[in-house]
């Protein structure tokens, strides 16, 4: 069996475990981010993360120590810009992400041939080291824990911020929590999917879930399940067919999304058909 074969390699097991946890964390955050029209923030942050990685490589600093604070700072700035309706959050994100990409590319090329640009851009899950795995597991655990503890507050803040604030919920606090967790998950996820593909982990699961689920709870659960299935399928097929892991995972997401669109459509057709009879 392919599965037992994969499970016999410790580095593959490590990658699988880290990937599953990061995927599920990203999918849950994604539901709230997409609903608040913040989904582009994930994209922007991953590019900032790339820039930070490039600079870290150029200065020979430990990558995580540079990336984590930079991406958190960027998350705070981007959320602040996007919350102001008139501020033109979209263009601010585009400006920041392309500038960060440019800085990253220049830093990487200046750092010399030792740096693997490809791994930065498209990820390299198989190079997940033991310490990477520990950090990723910690961050995923924190994300899943705070998401489930503050689930109802995050729901209320996302659904109707005006009402939530009026009834004494500190909405800014939960928005800040959301951006902090997003920043952390993106930094960790970039190791797997690379900075160009990581935003798919945030957007695809909730896009699928919103086609199928009716309640917030069902959307959250479907998103988590979809991210898990897509990661495992993508991971296994990349092993079987020797394809790039990150890209395979994104393709599986795309296929599931297409299926969910078809399913949604047939449900609507079926319903209207039944109503006609």
């Amino acid at each position: 069996m392919i599965i037992t074969e994969i499970l016999s390699y410790p580095f593959l097991v490590r990658a699988l475990l880290v990937g599953i946890l990061v995927s599920v964390s990203a999918s849950l955050l994604g539901v709230s981010l997409v609903l608040r029209r913040f989904s582009m923030i994930g994209d922007g942050l991953s590019h900032v993360g790339f820039g930070a990685l490039g600079v870290a490589a150029f200065l020979s600093l430990p990558p995580m120590a540079v990336t984590v604070p930079v991406v958190i700072a960027a998350a705070v700035v981007l959320l602040h810009l996007s919350s102001r309706r008139k501020g033109g959050g979209d263009s601010a994100i585009a400006l920041i992400s392309s500038s960060a990409l440019a800085i990253g590319v220049i830093a990487v090329s200046a750092a010399g041939v030792n740096t693997d640009l490809n791994a930065f851009l498209f990820g390299s899950i198989l190079s997940v080291s033991r310490s990477d795995a520990v950090v990723s597991l910690l961050i995923s655990a924190v994300t899943l824990f705070s998401y489930s503890v503050f689930y109802h507050q995050i729901y209320a803040t996302t659904f109707d911020p005006a009402f939530a604030t009026a009834t004494g919920i500190k909405t800014e606090r939960y928005t800040a929590l959301l951006s902090l967790l997003t920043a952390l998950v993106i930094v960790v996820g970039m190791r797997i999917l690379g900075s160009l593909l990581i935003s798919s982990l945030i957007i695809f699961p909730s896009a699928v879930a919103m086609k199928l689920g009716k309640s917030y709870l069902s959307v959250s659960l479907i998103a988590a399940a979809e991210s898990l299935i897509a990661f495992v399928l993508g991971f296994v097929s990349s092993y079987v067919f020797s394809l790039p892991t990150g890209a395979s995972i994104v393709l599986v997401h795309l296929i599931i999304f297409a299926l969910s669109v078809c399913l949604r459509h047939s449900i609507i057709v079926f319903r209207s058909h039944r109503e006609m009879i």
Partner: peptide, 20 residues
């Protein structure tokens, strides 16, 4: 202030009233 395409059941909306 409320999003039109937000996936939420009626009961979830009502329950969120007593969060405070």
């Amino acid at each position: 202030g409320i999003q039109r395409d937000f996936p939420s059941s009626v009961l979830e909306v009502v329950l969120s009233g007593c969060l405070n």
